[in-house]
Simulated scan of single mutants.
Amino acid sequence: LTADGWYHTSDAGFLDAHGHLKIIDRVKDVGRIKGGAFDGAMFAPKYVENKLKFFPHIKEVVAYGDGREKVCVMINIDFSAVGNWAERRNLPYAGYTDLAQKPEVYQLIKACVEQVNADLSADTLLAGSQVSRFLVLHKELDADDGELTRTNKVRRGFIADKYDVLIDALYGGKTEQYVETQVKFEDGRTGKVSATLRIDDAKTFAPVKAAA
């Protein structure tokens, strides 16, 4: 507590147009876009990740953009939800990796990303956090592989180092990238999962000007 009775939570937020306090991220994680159309705009990775995870077909998201000219994300589909979605459409698949790379699944996820972008465009302070490019990961992020904490929070820095080839591909304009990843199974054995991942662009929207 401060001398005058305030408690510092280390959360970042702002008062919206209605005077409501909107918490967007931890202070230490909030960054800025550098260059491009949204140069200098605030970037709140957790806020973007949580908005995408609101969709039932998306289980996990890792967003990057601090110090870069655009926001890119890596996404885990919810295997159960997307599997049920695929089965209702008679879309065959052989496991998570195969399902995650289906063109139909990419269109499903792209619609979610673009809906979030449309929502963000209406927020003056966060319009620069719109997602420009995305990919769907070939495996589920896992605490046993060091990608999540034991409380299932993404380890953004660790993931950036582990999947640096994917980060480079997202920001390098590639449309696909091969990746091979070592995984640890529940019985202690290790193996590898590999795939050529598709990388898609997402539509972004001009910021909506607030009514006078």
Rank of each mutant, 00 (worst) to 15 (best):
1 L>Y: 10
2 T>E: 03
3 A>F: 06
10 S>F: 01
13 G>S: 07
16 D>E: 08
17 A>M: 13
20 H>R: 14
23 I>N: 04
24 I>G: 08
35 G>C: 05
35 G>N: 05
36 G>S: 10
36 G>P: 08
37 A>E: 15
38 F>N: 11
38 F>V: 02
38 F>D: 04
39 D>F: 11
40 G>C: 14
42 M>C: 07
47 Y>K: 11
48 V>C: 14
49 E>M: 09
50 N>I: 04
53 K>D: 00
55 F>D: 12
57 H>F: 12
61 V>T: 07
62 V>K: 15
64 Y>P: 06
65 G>M: 05
67 G>N: 06
70 K>P: 02
75 I>R: 13
76 N>I: 09
76 N>V: 12
77 I>M: 07
78 D>Y: 10
80 S>Y: 10
80 S>P: 04
80 S>M: 10
81 A>P: 01
83 G>D: 09
84 N>P: 00
87 E>W: 08
91 L>M: 14
92 P>Q: 09
92 P>V: 11
93 Y>P: 13
96 Y>L: 05
96 Y>W: 10
97 T>R: 02
102 K>A: 05
105 V>E: 06
109 I>T: 04
111 A>I: 03
112 C>E: 13
114 E>P: 08
115 Q>M: 12
116 V>Q: 03
118 A>D: 13
118 A>C: 03
121 S>P: 03
121 S>K: 01
121 S>M: 05
121 S>A: 15
122 A>F: 00
122 A>H: 11
125 L>H: 07
134 F>I: 06
136 V>M: 02
139 K>G: 01
139 K>D: 04
140 E>L: 14
140 E>A: 13
141 L>N: 01
144 D>T: 03
144 D>V: 08
145 D>K: 02
145 D>N: 15
146 G>D: 05
146 G>H: 03
146 G>Q: 10
149 T>R: 07
149 T>A: 08
150 R>L: 09
150 R>H: 07
150 R>N: 12
153 K>G: 01
154 V>F: 07
156 R>L: 02
156 R>T: 09
156 R>V: 12
160 A>F: 03
160 A>N: 00
161 D>F: 11
161 D>E: 15
164 D>G: 10
167 I>W: 11
169 A>L: 06
169 A>G: 02
170 L>D: 01
172 G>C: 12
173 G>W: 12
173 G>Q: 07
174 K>L: 13
175 T>C: 07
177 Q>C: 13
177 Q>T: 11
177 Q>L: 08
181 T>K: 06
183 V>S: 06
185 F>Q: 13
187 D>M: 02
187 D>I: 04
189 R>M: 08
189 R>L: 06
189 R>K: 15
190 T>Y: 07
190 T>S: 03
191 G>M: 04
191 G>P: 00
192 K>I: 03
194 S>M: 00
197 L>T: 01
202 A>C: 11
203 K>A: 13
204 T>M: 15
205 F>W: 13
208 V>E: 04
209 K>P: 00
